[in-house]
């Protein structure tokens, strides 16, 4: 990918930011379901552009994560509060973050991990029926596990087998590629790396494990 393309992604991202400001403005003046739908689309496209940029930089070897301590309770709250649910839908995000308070803080790149988790949540919103669960827990043997699960049809077998990236034919599957990249880039000096785990259990279960 050339720097020109990276620059174009940047421009598009900035354009979306302006669009978002106008949408917020419009919503304040006269809220409507159509505006909320538009905001959700803008948020999704904006996230995908950031993911694309991260993949570009990984290819250029200039992607470096900013690993710092973050309060997990605050972080989980931020992750879920920014996801826009479709207007009038019966969907609810249930957070199970009791473990967050007990764990306290954890070191990770909050910006990138937030993108991964919000992408997973948006996916769950698209495919889930009623309940979406967002949970965080300490891993036995060290590490942290974020889980996003829904009650939809679950991951297709090709995705679970790692043969396909996309949930359906109209998606590029960049979300999973990005999630794998960010998970793997989380490492410890001892050589442990993060990873993602996909499974089906009454719906799709997406897990991000951080070392």
């Amino acid at each position: 990918m050339s720097p020109l393309i990276a620059g174009a992604i940047h421009d598009a991202k900035n354009g979306l930011n302006v669009l978002n400001t106008w949408l917020e403005e419009a919503r304040r003046a006269a809220p409507s379901a159509a505006i909320d739908e538009a905001r959700a689309v803008a948020a999704r496209v904006s996230a995908q552009l950031v993911e694309l940029l991260a993949l570009y930089r990984a290819g250029e070897d200039t992607l470096r994560l900013a690993i710092e301590d973050h309060d997990l309770t605050d972080f989980c709250q931020e992750v879920t509060s920014e996801v826009i649910l479709p207007p009038g839908s019966a969907l609810r995000i249930e957070s199970d973050t009791d473990a967050a308070a007990a764990i306290g803080a954890w070191a990770f790149d909050a910006y990138q991990v937030k993108l991964v988790l919000q992408e997973a949540l948006r996916n769950a919103v698209r495919h889930g029926a009623q309940h979406i669960r967002f949970a965080v827990a300490a891993q036995a043997g060290g590490g942290l596990r974020f889980t996003v699960s829904d009650d939809g049809p679950g991951f297709p077998q090709e995705v679970l087998d790692g043969e396909a990236r996309a949930m359906d034919s109209d998606s590029s599957g960049i979300g999973l590629v990005f999630a794998r990249l960010i998970a793997n880039r989380h490492a410890t000096p001892g050589g442990r790396h993060g990873r993602i785990e996909l499974s089906n259990d009454g719906g799709a279960v997406f897990a991000l494990l951080l070392p």
Partner: peptide
């Protein structure tokens, strides 16, 4: 040795 490993894991630190 510790610092080299730390730079490997946390290239931004």
């Amino acid at each position: 040795e510790h610092l080299s490993n730390a730079i490997g894991a946390y290239p931004n630190y």
